[in-house]
Simulated assay, not measured.
Amino acid sequence: MRDRDRTREVLLEVGRKVFLEKGYNAAGLEAVLRTAGVPKGSFYYYFGSKEEFGLAVVDSFVRDSSEQLEATLSERGLPPMVRLRRYFDASAERFEAGRCRSGCLIGKLSQEMAEQSEAFRTRLSEALDAWTDRLAACLREAQEGGELRADLDARALAELLADGWQGALLRAKTLQSPRPLRSFVDLMFGPILRPPD
């Protein structure tokens, strides 16, 4: 990787951490630049504005999250519902490993920025839709294999999973405990998404 590309990636990584901790509006560029060890003039070589930087941070987060999702959901040696549960279990473990503070950047910025910036609202909505589409594809695969009732709308179930997870994350951050995430996973993959009778 060239030095120029490496500097951009460092800025995006630091931006992700700062946005997760403080949110977009409270995140000063000075703090990002100081942490990244990048002079202010260099920042504008990579990004034309704070908003452009913020959207690039979202894109970077979505790319990395999508890779994690795909790596788990494409393990063909496991049944679809096992893969799906593993994905949510691993997400809960990452949250707990981060001392119950990190959460999901998409959820955090959706709460803060959806009403403030149409560019952010659109980008965040696209990210949530793509995530939900991938969950729905795995649920359809489970239906085809007889693991899940075929009369249920896979897309609606995927939305329930995605929306419920974001709510559980919010509650978990408030409690500083992974308990809401564990309860969500146990209920969803226990009595709610149980195999057909």
Rank of each mutant, 00 (worst) to 15 (best):
M1F: 09
M1R: 14
M1G: 15
D3F: 02
D3A: 10
D5A: 11
T7K: 04
E9S: 09
L11R: 12
L12K: 14
G15Q: 02
K17V: 08
F19N: 00
G23C: 05
N25C: 11
N25W: 11
A26Y: 10
G28I: 09
L33A: 04
T35G: 04
A36K: 00
G37H: 06
V38S: 01
G41C: 01
G41A: 00
G41W: 00
Y44S: 05
Y46V: 01
Y46K: 07
F47D: 05
G48E: 12
S49A: 07
K50V: 02
E51G: 05
E51V: 15
F53A: 03
F53S: 01
L55W: 05
V58M: 01
D64L: 15
S66A: 15
E67D: 14
E67T: 15
E70F: 14
L73Q: 12
L73W: 07
S74L: 15
R76P: 00
R76V: 08
R76G: 12
P79T: 09
P79M: 10
P80H: 11
P80L: 12
M81P: 00
V82M: 08
V82Q: 09
R86K: 15
F88D: 02
A90V: 10
S91C: 09
A92H: 05
E93T: 13
F95W: 07
E96S: 08
G98L: 13
C100N: 09
C104V: 07
I106R: 05
I106H: 03
G107I: 03
L109S: 03
Q111R: 14
E112A: 08
E115I: 06
S117R: 11
F120C: 08
R123T: 04
A127K: 02
L128Y: 06
A130S: 14
A130E: 07
D133S: 14
A137E: 11
G145E: 12
R149H: 13
R149N: 13
D153F: 07
D153M: 15
D153S: 14
A154H: 10
R155N: 12
R155T: 09
R155Q: 14
A156R: 14
A156G: 06
A156P: 00
L157P: 00
A162F: 02
A162Q: 08
D163P: 03
Q166T: 10
G167F: 11
L169V: 03
L170E: 13
T174Q: 11
L175T: 03
Q176C: 13
R179Q: 11
P180C: 13
R182P: 00
S183I: 12
D186Q: 15
L187F: 11
F189W: 10
P191D: 10
L193V: 00
R194E: 01
R194Y: 03
R194D: 04
P196H: 04
